[in-house]
Amino acid sequence: SKPLAGTADLDTLLGKNYGALRDIVINANPSHPPLSLLVLHCLLRKRFHVLSTVHVHSSVSNVPPHLLACFEEQDKNQSRHDFQLGFTLIWKDVPTPQMKFSIQNMCPIEGEGNIARFLFALLGQQQDPITATLVDSWIDMAIFQLGQGSSKEKVAVLRTINAALGRSPWLVGANRSLADIVTCCVVLQAAGPVAIPANVQKWMKSCENLPEFNGVYKLLQ
């Protein structure tokens, strides 16, 4: 059989000798769904043939139906080797999302931001050092100060985001980047009682209009 388009890219990105189907396994807590990872899953499916599955670990019970059905239906007649990537989401009682890859000597990757960085990198976009680092620093700010900070910290971060969005339509550069995906998902989940400033509201609307965000908004409804 002829190789699928995109296979060579994954070989280059990941190194060659890792077996036919690369399996990404993500453990996540249903009380805090990792929205940004669902957006990235959607982007990966545009680029690769992804075999997506959802499981429930015995450590959690009563996972809501919309979380069990968070991946769209896919063709069940295809066999495993027709796919380039396996993406398995396991709802489990973990303090923070964890990712395991089908390689023994790799340590589990913890943290939604770190997993998001990895999944986005699979899409193979090149960035200059300043842009790449700016994206990383927004992700850290979103996850730690907005996601886990006090209300005072949240207000301060929202103010910083608002100021950045007053200068350009997206957080880094002229186009939507991983910084927008992760930050917007954290705002959606973490802002709570804190008021959302005007530029941030407008930018969230722009994110909402991106097709890869469809699944996330369905989950939040």
């Binding site: 990105l13 990941l14 190194g15 990712m99 890859f101 390689i103 790799m106 340590c107 589990p108 990757i109 913890e110 943290g111 931001g113 770190n114 997993i115 960085r117 990895f118 990198a121 699979l122 730690f144």
Partner: peptide, 18 residues
């Protein structure tokens, strides 16, 4: 040297600061 190692490094950067 590749994306997997990069992900592990990201993991340890967060681990060291948190």
């Amino acid at each position: 040297t590749n994306l997997l190692e990069q992900a592990e490094i990201d993991h340890w950067l967060e681990f060291s600061s948190r």
